[in-house]
């Protein structure tokens, strides 16, 4: 198998295309932080892409630009041919944060149905969809629970279900499992892989863990800090569907080693 190669700039027909993107934080007169510089990424429909890099390298910033929570200083993002703002207003973006950000005053089912409620979907339809998602993420029996009665892992399941409620075309996750213990994390990794497989949604995952990235992704984007740039793309050619046992695979170890070597450059 050939070593993964640096990939050329995005083809215009890609589902998500990020071109010439940079972002500098700070108002005039303040200290300027050049968080992202010259970012070009192309993502195909249904692809699972991970962003990885040391903390402060701009992973969250990049994800927030794709999700229209931030505007870039220069460059352009297109999602299915639309600007992030249009895609967001069409409810084509799902976003999961490290903090589950559930509404403590709503039961789990009403939390999951929140984006539908905000869109004005009729109640019966909302409940049908929420029930379907509860089954999908494995929260059956917790429809009527309050968020504070759930463990961290279950709260993230609910947050993922909520993000999927409007059938988004792209799912963005910012270190969603960063605060969970290893076993819960493994389990949720498998859930996410299964959700990706059955829904066919395009996924961009921010993670600290190279092993998580290799386990789940079709492609890994390694970023280096100050300013945040792409140092390389790693294409993960492990067969799908993957179970946790893929981690015993020699190829898995090769890819992890490759990723680690690339990451270490960012820490120098």
């Amino acid at each position: 198998m050939a070593e993964p190669q640096r990939v050329p700039p995005p083809a215009p027909e890609a589902f998500v295309s990020i071109a010439g993107l940079s972002l500098t934080y700070g108002a005039p007169g303040q200290v300027l932080v050049n968080a992202l510089q010259d970012i070009d990424i192309a993502i195909d429909k249904g692809q699972f892409v991970s962003l990885i890099g040391p903390s402060g390298c701009g992973k969250s910033t990049l994800l927030r630009i794709i999700g229209d929570l931030l505007s870039p200083s220069t460059g352009k993002v297109l999602i299915g041919g639309s600007e992030p703002r249009e895609a967001r207003l069409d409810r084509e973006i799902g976003f999961v944060f490290q903090d589950s950000a559930l509404l403590e005053w709503r039961r789990i089912r009403e939390n999951i149905a929140l984006p539908l409620e905000l869109r004005g979907t009729p109640k019966a339809e909302r409940e049908r969809k929420a029930e379907e998602l509860i089954q999908l993420v494995g929260l059956d029996g917790f429809q009527k629970a309050w968020p504070r009665q759930l463990s961290g892992g279950m709260r993230q399941r609910a947050a993922i279900a909520r993000a999927l409620s409007t059938n988004p075309r792209i799912l963005l996750l910012d270190e969603p499992f960063g605060a969970l213990d290893q076993i819960t994390r493994d389990r949720l990794n498998m859930e996410l892989a299964r959700i990706h497989e059955v829904t066919g949604v395009t996924v961009v995952l921010v993670t600290h863990s190279i092993r998580e990235a290799v386990l789940l992704s079709d492609r890994i984007v390694v970023l280096t800090p100050r300013p945040g740039r792409i140092s390389r793309f790693i294409d993960v050619d492990l067969p799908r569907p993957r179970g946790l046992e893929v981690r015993n695979d020699e190829r898995f170890d090769d890819l992890v080693r490759l990723g680690n070597r690339e990451l270490e450059k960012g820490y120098m």
């Binding site: 999700g67 229209d68 929570l69 967001r88 207003l89 409810r91 973006i93 799902g94 976003f95 944060f97 903090d99 950000a101 509404l103 005053w105 929140l114 984006p115 409620e117 905000l118 869109r119 909520r162 993000a163 409007t166």
Partner: peptide, 27 residues
Amino acid sequence: YDRTIMDVFHIAAANGPQRFFKMRLPS
């Protein structure tokens, strides 16, 4: 109110009254 929940409402394209009655007032 929680700033991340504000982001959730932004992603869901909530309007001003929805932010008030479904997020800020309950919190």
